[in-house]
Amino acid sequence: MKEPNDVLIRSVSKVAVVIIFTFAINLFISGHHYPGGGFIGGLAFSSAVVLLFLTFNIETVRKNFPVDFKVIAALGVLIAVLTGVGAMLLGVPFLTQAFDYFNLPIFGKTELATAVLFDIGVALAVIGTSLTIIMSIGDDR
């Protein structure tokens, strides 16, 4: 890719990325009750990173995100599997999910579900994979 040199895009995307990140996380958390979830959240997150790729170049982004996305993908799968195994440890079939309500100090009555853990795994796997793909292709010139 050519070195992008567009001030407008750079300044806008700096703001936009933050918004997208926020939105992605919101999408992810609300996935339990409203549209959203691991897949969408993860994809939105990675699209934000892709936007960064486009505006700046990959090297810059990599410097600021010193993470190996392959590891993240693997981690996601691992988390997902582990939630399943956790269910097995408690004597219920693989991947049985549970939920309950707790009263937390700030949030008030909150529902906590193991499904959310699983969803985190999904989201991480999606982020990791999509960014691995994009980065490897972008790297190759």
């Binding site: 979830g37 691991g38 996601g76 799968v77 997902a80 939920f99 309950d100 499904a115 795994g121």
Partner: peptide, 23 residues
């Protein structure tokens, strides 16, 4: 499943193993 989003509940709970294999 304690979830109001049916689609998401299917994905992560009812058919969790499919999703797991999918990722």
């Amino acid at each position: 499943a304690g979830a109001k989003n049916i689609v998401n509940a299917i994905l992560v709970d009812f058919r969790g193993i499919d999703t797991m294999l999918e990722i």
